[in-house]
Amino acid sequence: MKLWLDKLFAMINTSIKKVGTQPEIIYLTGGMGLSPIVQKAIRTAYPSINIEVADPFSSVVLGAAIKAKKVFQ
Rank of each mutant, 00 (worst) to 15 (best):
38 V>W: 03
36 P>I: 06
50 N>Q: 14
56 P>T: 05
65 A>C: 11
41 A>Q: 11
64 A>H: 03
44 T>F: 00
41 A>N: 07
23 P>L: 06
53 V>I: 09
52 E>P: 02
5 L>W: 03
61 V>Q: 01
46 Y>R: 10
6 D>F: 01
50 N>Y: 05
6 D>R: 06
55 D>E: 13
39 Q>I: 09
2 K>N: 11
68 A>L: 07
4 W>L: 12
33 G>M: 07
60 V>E: 09
40 K>M: 01
16 I>F: 08
49 I>C: 02
22 Q>K: 15
36 P>W: 02
19 V>D: 12
16 I>M: 05
8 L>C: 08
68 A>P: 06
35 S>Q: 10
49 I>S: 08
63 G>T: 02
57 F>L: 13
55 D>A: 04
51 I>E: 07
43 R>T: 11
46 Y>H: 02
64 A>G: 14
16 I>E: 06
6 D>P: 00
45 A>N: 14
12 I>W: 05
26 I>D: 05
26 I>L: 07
46 Y>N: 08
10 A>L: 06
68 A>E: 05
54 A>H: 04
66 I>G: 00
26 I>H: 07
8 L>S: 04
47 P>F: 02
14 T>S: 15
48 S>T: 15
27 Y>Q: 08
34 L>I: 05
56 P>Q: 09
26 I>K: 08
64 A>D: 06
48 S>Q: 14
70 K>P: 00
17 K>I: 13
53 V>M: 01
24 E>Y: 06
12 I>K: 02
17 K>P: 00
29 T>W: 01
62 L>R: 02
41 A>K: 13
71 V>L: 11
73 Q>E: 15
64 A>W: 04
72 F>A: 05
3 L>Y: 09
24 E>S: 15
27 Y>I: 11
69 K>Q: 14
60 V>A: 11
20 G>D: 13
17 K>A: 14
21 T>D: 12
5 L>Q: 02
71 V>F: 01
8 L>I: 13
36 P>D: 12
51 I>V: 14
14 T>I: 05
13 N>G: 13
54 A>L: 07
17 K>Q: 14
72 F>L: 13
25 I>F: 12
1 M>R: 03
57 F>K: 12
62 L>I: 13
7 K>L: 06
2 K>F: 00
59 S>R: 04
28 L>R: 05
39 Q>N: 08
66 I>L: 11
22 Q>P: 02
3 L>I: 06
21 T>L: 09
23 P>W: 10
18 K>V: 11
59 S>Y: 05
14 T>R: 13
11 M>S: 14
6 D>S: 04
7 K>D: 07
11 M>R: 04
24 E>W: 00
3 L>W: 07
24 E>A: 13
